[in-house]
């Protein structure tokens, strides 16, 4: 049983080994206990400085990373593209190198371009955590999703997970497929043909276009958000209307009750209520949407803690 990650950065789930994921979960268990204490803070990262670089909007991920960093006692600086010199035309490498010159050890970055985190890891000398790069990967979301399944069902291996919705534009879907498959789950992707990548089956997953069939098959339904900002055109170029999408691929009470057994409902947020899931389903007893958010902090603490362990002390801040 290894106690160190095999990687220096967290760029995507594709780079992690199954042992890495299990180590992250084991460490997150410890942090979950820390978060239940009267004082929810440990001193582990007190000599680490982290910059949160958000070149794209985010609420949950940003707040979650920020809380995780604060509860590990790290020093943090926040940066969003709307209020920065990126607007003045500075390149990504220049922006980051300037921040690193101020003695920053880790970079947590969200960026609209796929591969931005990998690119950065090759050109700057800091530990990079990918908080979402375009339509590519969102590794910490996949980790917290799998962690939440493990918590709810006691295991991930052998569990049947249907990932439903806008697969084409979803970084959460790709990271989830990698993560769940590494942990031995069975994965199905379900969505309209226009929102399904052409080579989806090459990922080694089932592909389904009928939500009712997918729901009858699965133990867990992860209802992805329709990515309005990535559809192009007037926002819904890939399907006729939100109403039609909701009728065919939305999960409402009637559809849920037709399954006639308990399946776990997940959503990475933010929810378009009434589109992917209706309010009564989102707030159903089998919905673990808020557990996902809660586990996000513990899982991100584990990721930051384990990556920081790989930063040599004499090198700190250099």
């Amino acid at each position: 049983m290894s106690d160190q990650l095999s990687t220096r950065h967290l760029l995507g789930i594709a780079d992690l080994t199954t042992e890495d994921i299990e180590l992250i979960f084991r460490t997150a268990d410890g942090f979950k206990e820390v978060l239940s204490r009267p004082i929810k803070k440990v001193p582990s990262l007190r000599d680490i400085t982290i910059a949160n670089l958000f070149f794209e909007n985010s609420t949950r991920t940003r707040v979650s990373f920020e809380l995780a960093e604060k509860r590990l006692s790290a020093d943090i600086v926040n940066f969003s593209s709307s209020s920065s010199s990126v607007k003045k035309g500075e390149t990504l490498i220049d922006t980051v190198n300037n921040i690193l010159a101020m003695k920053v050890d880790m970079i947590v970055m969200r960026h609209p371009d796929p591969g931005a985190a990998l690119f950065l890891s090759r050109h700057v000398d800091a530990c990079i955590v990918n908080a979402g790069d375009g339509t590519h990967e969102h590794p910490t979301q996949a980790l917290l999703d799998a962690y939440s399944i493990r918590e709810k069902l006691g295991k991930v291996k052998g569990v049947k997970v249907a990932i439903v919705g806008d697969i084409l534009h979803s970084r959460v879907a790709l990271s989830n497929v990698h993560c769940l498959k590494k942990l031995g789950a069975e994965v199905m992707l379900c969505g309209p043909t226009t929102l399904m990548p052409r080579h989806a089956a090459a990922l080694g997953v089932r592909v389904e276009h009928d939500l009712d069939k997918a729901l009858r098959w699965c133990d867990v339904a992860n209802m992805l958000r329709i990515q309005m900002e990535r559809q192009g055109g007037d926002g819904i170029a890939n399907f006729p209307s939100l109403r039609e999408y909701a009728m065919l691929f939305g999960l409402d009470r009637a559809r849920y009750e037709r399954i006639a057994r308990d399946i776990v409902i997940m959503h990475p947020g933010p929810i378009n209520r009434g589109v992917e899931v209706t309010t009564d389903v989102a707030d159903h007893a089998n919905s673990i949407i808020l557990d996902q958010v809660q586990n996000g902090v513990a899982v991100r603490m584990a990721v930051l803690y384990l990556l920081a362990a790989g930063i040599p002390r004499d090198h700190s801040g250099a």
Binding site: G30, F31, V42, A309, P312
Partner: peptide, 14 residues
């Protein structure tokens, strides 16, 4: 998580 030798020895997970 309270040890003072974090980043100086290999064992890190609880």
């Amino acid at each position: 998580f309270h040890r003072d030798d974090f980043r100086q020895r290999s064992v890190t997970a609880p």
